[in-house]
Nucleic acid binder design. Structure first.
Lengths: 254, 254
DNA sequence: ACCTTTTAGTGGTCTGACCACCAAATCGAT
DNA sequence: ATCGATTTGGTGGTCAGACCACTAAAAGGT
């Protein structure tokens, strides 16, 4: 077999069919291989779907299914139209993908809520500690924004929940570790529905929200003071207290 | 609009078209909605692709793209043929999906290797501590298996790496927190290629491997002794020492 | 009662067509 | 020569319809 086939992408990735199970898996493997060997980096374009199909000897439908899968993982991004922006590109959107992933699996109870809470404690302890050590003035202000939203009188439980999420996300991002931040975001987002449901079932809402508010202020103070150990401790206490105050969290409500 | 359309799945999920952007996204949202409200649980079957297509008013191709995406997230599983096992089902395979996800994004350098290592330290500290507190005899034996493999003379670097992965995975699973374990597995797997590459570039392999072996034995001893604090400390030292001994880990080799 | 054949329904694949979109090339009037 | 309007061509998005491979259950024959 001579390699006389025209290599349209000179020096670029060599798109050759690999193993064979389902067609779209072949395409996924071909693209992943190019990523693994470094032939495709973030921002690089993929060949047009029709080209890929003929090069890999599969139908365009198979190519499209593969692209969809990788798009769902936050690895690809497609634009219609013409010109430099048109086509499919290697992307870097891990956060959204991770969030969707965890949200689904938590909803399916593939992870015990206790495990999720424990993992959250571990991650956010780390984030708080990192934020205390690394955060600058701007990052701390980003944390205070949602804090003030939660202090507003008469805020709805849903708004409170979203501001609470924003608060914890801001701390995670202030920590400076992107992977930890993304995992934190994903876990908090995956708990949004159950927490909101638990909020609704709550009788003494004002009391619980007052407690949460107070704990939040304690955490931001520790971070601003650069006291990582205290920030971590208060964060763990906060999460566990909130978890304990929301008994509905323990029994997944259908 | 009266609801006179025949509801084939009586009492089951109601498959109605929702918003509209791309066709497959509509299908994904429809399925996710059913999962979110608890109408679909692990093991439940989806309607046949052709049915879903007509109910949601999209082509079968659109339905298939959506199914592929969710399959890639470890949420669906499809079987061909006829009978009770045939068709598409809600599945629970988060580990593989998470692993593929992280492997890709690490390869794309969407996460700094330092961040990945720090996250790994955090997770495995926790796993080791949990394993010391919770593990039973069987779980500890599962940890010792890979340990003995690594002690074999003349083992190749690749075999060593795989046994090392199995060692850390076994500890994570002994901890009893499925989410933490899955994240640990995914992170270690995402580092497989770079670590293997770093191993190859290593001059004094026997010296490094001897160090790693010794540290492993220390960790399992601490776990067996039920000393969570020591197990966590040794695990962190182990990971950081290994990271330091592999300078190639710091500069992503294309 | 048992084995064989047929059937029907599932996902897997492919083809070929058309649409919406949009930058760049083309054209035409000034 | 300039500038605006038009055309062009390539991109992903969508669809309809046809097969194929597979397999459990039904139908049929011994």
């Amino acid at each position: 077999m001579s390699e006389n086939l025209p290599e349209t992408w000179q020096g670029g990735p060599s798109w050759r069919p690999v193993a064979r199970s389902r067609a779209h898996e072949l395409v996924i493997e071909a693209i992943e291989d190019q990523i693994m060997v470094g032939a495709l980096k973030v921002g690089d374009p993929l060949p047009p779907e029709r080209d890929l199909a003929s090069r890999l000897q599969v139908s365009r439908a198979g190519v499209r299914e593969a692209i969809r899968v990788l798009e769902g993982q936050g690895v690809l991004r497609s634009n219609v139209g013409a010109g430099a922006d048109a086509g499919t590109f290697i992307a870097a959107m891990p956060s959204e993908a991770l969030t969707r992933f965890l949200r689904l699996h938590v909803a399916l109870s593939n992870f015990r809520l206790d495990d999720v809470v424990d993992a959250r404690v571990m991650l956010e302890r780390s984030s708080a500690s990192l934020a205390a050590a690394n955060s600058d003035q701007r990052a701390r202000e980003a944390i205070r924004g949602p804090l003030e939203q939660m202090d507003v009188e008469g805020i709805s439980r849903e708004e409170f929940n979203d501001a609470d999420t924003a608060f914890h996300v801001a701390i995670a991002e202030a920590g400076g570790n992107q992977l930890v931040a993304d995992m934190t975001i994903a876990i908090r987002a995956s708990l949004r529905a159950p927490i909101l449901e638990a909020f609704r079932q709550l009788e003494d809402w004002s009391q619980v929200s007052a407690m949460l508010r107070e704990q939040h202020h304690g955490i931001i103070e520790a971070i601003a003071a650069g006291d990582g150990e205290r920030a971590a401790r208060l964060t763990e206490e906060h999460i566990r207290a909130a978890s304990a105050a929301l008994p509905a969290l323990r029994s997944p409500g259908g």
